[in-house]
Amino acid sequence: MTAVLRLELAAESGGGRAETVGDFAEFVRMSMPGLLRYGHALTGNPHDASDLVQSVLEKVGSRWVSVQRKGDDPLAYVRRAMANTHISIWRRRRRESLVAEFPETGAVPPELSRLDNEPLWQALRELPPRQRAVIVLRYYENLSEAEIANALGISCGTVKSQSSKAMASLRTRLGKD
């Protein structure tokens, strides 16, 4: 661990800094649209999606060298971090939109209002964050129960129970039970 830190500090103090920043900027440019969309699914609204993406990317970017050195796919890493961040610490509501443009007042884009009018979208919003994350990982990311458990750091049993609770709530709200 400390060896990794030293390496990172060494890289940061050397000429690799520029390349690292350029590389991270490139990663952000390429992944931003997909991450915003994913964040939208996770959080249920554009504001929180924007905040979530910005917050997680900043954290990852501030440690880009070590994230890359781990050898994992950085995109998968960011997506897992977003799910976890959404569950564990995403409690604030901020008005400013940071990375996504979104009209503050007045005319909400019609396509957005139609999404807001989807009963299923509304029902998802009512789910607790962890249940919602399990649903998003399963149906948006198409992960298996074991993969969801691994991504969220919970047991398969918890994934199952959260998933069935979520599905039951959704059915109730949609009048499908």
């Binding site: 554009p46 990317l57 970017g61 990375v99 996504a100 139609r114 959704l170």
Partner: peptide, 29 residues
């Protein structure tokens, strides 16, 4: 659920300065 999550309306517009904003934030951190 699959249909909803593949809906185009989940797309959000990326602001032109989004990348810069994130890179600056990362540098600050």
């Amino acid at each position: 659920l699959r249909r909803l999550f593949s809906d185009d309306r989940l797309e959000l517009h990326v602001t032109p300065d989004a990348t810069d904003s994130v890179v600056r934030g990362a540098a600050r951190r």
